[in-house]
Amino acid sequence: MKVLVPIKRVVDKDVKVRPKADETGVELANVKMSINPFDENAVEEAVRLKEKGIATEVVVVSVGPDKARDTLVSALAVGADRAILVDSGDAEVQPLAIAKLLKAVADKEQPQLVIFGRQAIDDDAVQTGQIFAALQGWGQAAFASISKVDVASGKATVGREIDGGLETLELSLPAVITADLRLNEPRYAKLPDVMKAKKKPQETTTPAALGIDITPRLKTLKVSEPPKRKGGGKVADVAELVSKLKNEAKVI
C-alpha cells in the first residue's frame, strides 16, 4: 500500500509573524521556514505504517517554491521514501488549487491512503484535505488522534476528536486522514538519515505540467495586526455590568 503525505513549508512555529508594511500579506523575507507541525504528525504516521509493514512506500509531496525542497528533504530524513515537488514558484496557491494539484498527483501515484496535517499554521484554512477527499470521492476522517489501518480488509479505523470527545470512524480505502497533534509524537531525525536524505529519489513537476490552473479564486484585501487590546475597567455590581453590556457594548 502506498501512502501519500502532502506537506507544506510554513513560517516556523516559533517565529512571531508580522504583517508586511503594505498589509498585502505576512512578512516572509528572512523568516525561518519549517515543515508545518501537523504535517510532521502526518509524515510520522505514514512512516510508522511502513515500519509496521502496512505501507510499502511513503511519498511526500509539497506545493510551493523551490525552497520547499528543504522541507521535503526533512521528511525524507525521518523515513519518507520519495519526494515530489510541485513547483509553483512564488505564486499564491489556495486550498482548492492545492487539492486539485494533489488530485493530479494522486491520479498518477494511486495511493491507498493520503494523510494530511489537519491544517497549516500559516493560513489556518483547514480545507485542503477535505476538498481533496471530495474531489476524489473518497471517505475522509479529519482531526485524527488514533488510527488503525488494515490493508487486508481494505479498511481504516480512525478515532477523531470532536467537541464532546472521541468519535470512531471506519473508512474504506482509498481514504483521506488529516492528522491532529495527538495522533503521535514525531521522531527526531537520525544523523545518518539526515545525511542520506538528499540522495533519496526526488522529482519536480509544475502546475502547468499537471494541467491545473492555480489562479486564486479569493482575493486577499488586507493583512493587518489585530487591534491592540484596550484597557479594561471594573464594574461595581451586576446592574452596572448589564447596563454597560446593553448601552455601551450593545451586545444584549
Binding site: D70, V73, S74, A77, Y188, A189, L191, V194, M195, A197, K198
Partner: peptide, 14 residues
C-alpha cells in the same frame, strides 16, 4: 566530497 552545504544546514537544524 560527500558533504554539501544543504546537508550541513539540515544537520544544524536537527
Amino acid at each position: 566530497a560527500e558533504v554539501d552545504a544543504d546537508t550541513v544546514d539540515a544537520i544544524l537544524e536537527e
